[in-house]
């Protein structure tokens, strides 16, 4: 475990222990299941945005992509009665395509990532609302819906995306399995493939990477595709978890949670730094803070304040740690 991952892990343990001491119901199996479930959902998005942040970019459209994927999925399965497998494949492709468009606009048309994805945020949210007349709808069809004939299959999907697997007396939420697979794949990609190395290189110094023969444009496009794909998968998970999708609200602000988790988890917005494990732990810290606030009965009005302070402290501590270790490395270098 790298040093900065160790710091965030310590934070996780600290909040965990404090809450557990103050409220004995906190460590109940039921609460742990919920915590794992929500952490997994948000961590999937955060992993996606970590890729983009490592390249030195940003993606503000994640929340809207989550919303759009959830809406389109529900619309296709419930209202249009389209085969659920086709609906899932379509929505996943759609999210990948969104990432591709972002990447092309950023690399080929040379528009700033902030602008491209901000416009994306607005456009996909609108699309969701327009498609559904802004009516909330769920992926699981009710009697009278066209998709009702596929109900059995959809219920199976519901189990896959938002079910629980009994392991003894513990019910493991299935989103955790998604996170496990995605997290391991992402970590392998970043640390064990040449493309992962290229992403870090170009995030640290895009020109330097390009002069070394790396096709930096293609690598950036890949990062944006991965980011939107993860948002799309998160969209599926959220749709099944919430059972009802509100076109105007589902996923709203989630990009900020994702970016916050990525930054807290050790990604630098300057690019070139980041660890998947750190991001997953940071996403868990954020969910844990929400859970603790409820468990300790702190006013919900204080949530954002507490979250903001924790993230700020985490990042400040990280920055101190880094300059400290940089100084030590420099001092070491000067010794003969």
């Amino acid at each position: 475990m790298k040093k900065n991952t160790l710091g965030i892990f310590g934070l996780l343990i600290a909040i965990f222990v404090v809450t557990a001491v103050l409220n004995d119901k906190f460590i109940s199996a039921y609460n742990m299941q919920n915590l794992i479930k929500w952490s997994s959902l948000y961590a999937v998005m955060s992993i996606g945005v970590a890729f983009v942040i490592i390249t030195g970019g940003i993606d503000l459209s994640i929340g809207s992509v989550v919303g759009l994927v959830a809406v389109v999925l529900a619309y296709m399965m419930k209202v249009k009665g389209i085969n659920p497998s086709a609906a899932i494949i379509t929505t996943i492709c759609m999210s990948g395509l969104i990432g591709l468009v972002h990447g092309l606009l950023i690399t080929k048309a040379k528009i700033q990532p902030f602008v491209v994805t901000l416009c994306g945020l607005l456009i996909y949210r609108s699309l969701s609302r327009w498609l559904t007349d802004n009516q909330s709808l769920g992926p699981v069809p009710l009697e009278g819906d066209k998709g009702y004939t596929n109900l059995e299959f959809i219920n199976q999907l519901d189990f896959i995306f938002s079910g629980k697997i009994a392991i003894g007396s513990f019910n493991l939420p299935t989103p955790f399995l998604f996170l496990l697979v995605i997290g391991i794949t992402a970590a392998l990609f970043l640390n064990r493939t040449i493309w992962g190395r290229y992403l870090f290189a170009l995030g640290n110094n895009e020109d330097g990477a390009r002069y070394s023969g790396i096709n930096t444009d293609n690598m950036k496009i890949i990062a944006y595709v991965i980011c939107s794909l993860m948002a799309g998968i998160a969209g599926l998970l959220f749709a099944f978890e919430l059972d009802s999708v509100q076109p105007a609200q589902t996923g709203e602000f989630y990009e900020l949670y994702a970016i916050a988790a990525a930054v807290l988890g050790g990604c630098s917005l300057r690019g070139g730094e980041g660890s998947i494990l750190g991001v997953i732990i940071a996403a868990a810290v954020i969910r844990l803070i929400y859970n603790s606030i409820n468990m300790l009965g702190i006013s919900t009005h204080l949530e954002f304040g507490i979250l903001g302070i924790v993230i700020l402290l985490g990042v400040v501590a990280d920055e101190f740690l880094k300059s400290y270790s940089a100084k030590r490395a420099a001092a070491k270098q000067q010794e003969p």
Binding site: F26, S28, Y30, N31, N34, W38, R287, N291, N294, G297
Partner: peptide, 9 residues
């Protein structure tokens, strides 16, 4: 998640 936390607490 608010509802879930209430069930826990």
């Amino acid at each position: 998640s608010n509802a879930e936390d209430a069930i826990t607490k």
